[in-house]
Amino acid sequence: MDTLEPLLAAHPFARHLSAAHLHVLVGCARNVRFDAGQFVFREGERADAFYLIRDGCIALEVATPTTTLTMMTLGAGEVLGWSWLFPPYRWKFDARAVEPTRAIALDAQCLRTKSETDHDLGYELLKQFALMVEQRLHATRLQLLNAYDANG
């Protein structure tokens, strides 16, 4: 566990966390890696973790009968997964590594339990995720705008 703390601290997600909260997170963290093409999770599976990407690239995908669409790709410094926060704790999309990817996985059950007993920690986590949701929503709106096609 000693080696995880600096890795975790180096990730942008941890930038605003206190040392104490960081320490709690380390208790729920493990190091993971994915090969190119490997699924991180699949739509409908239990959302039992979220991932702080250290390097590599992960695509959020949805499969249709004839093709696979990529919603967005996530890279170093980004966070994958928020379905673990909200019941029924199921992933809404597929996540697949498109290149070798290293990440820190944070156990959902562990964090949910600790957040219920330490609301300050829960609040900090929710702030981080709210910011992330805001950014993703904004990016989605930009994609919807079709700005490259619209006038200047």
Binding site: A76, E78, A139, L142
Partner: peptide, 11 residues
């Protein structure tokens, strides 16, 4: 990559 280029700035 998929997504808007501006979002990648934070990375």
């Amino acid at each position: 990559l998929v997504g808007v280029p501006t979002l990648r700035l934070r990375q």
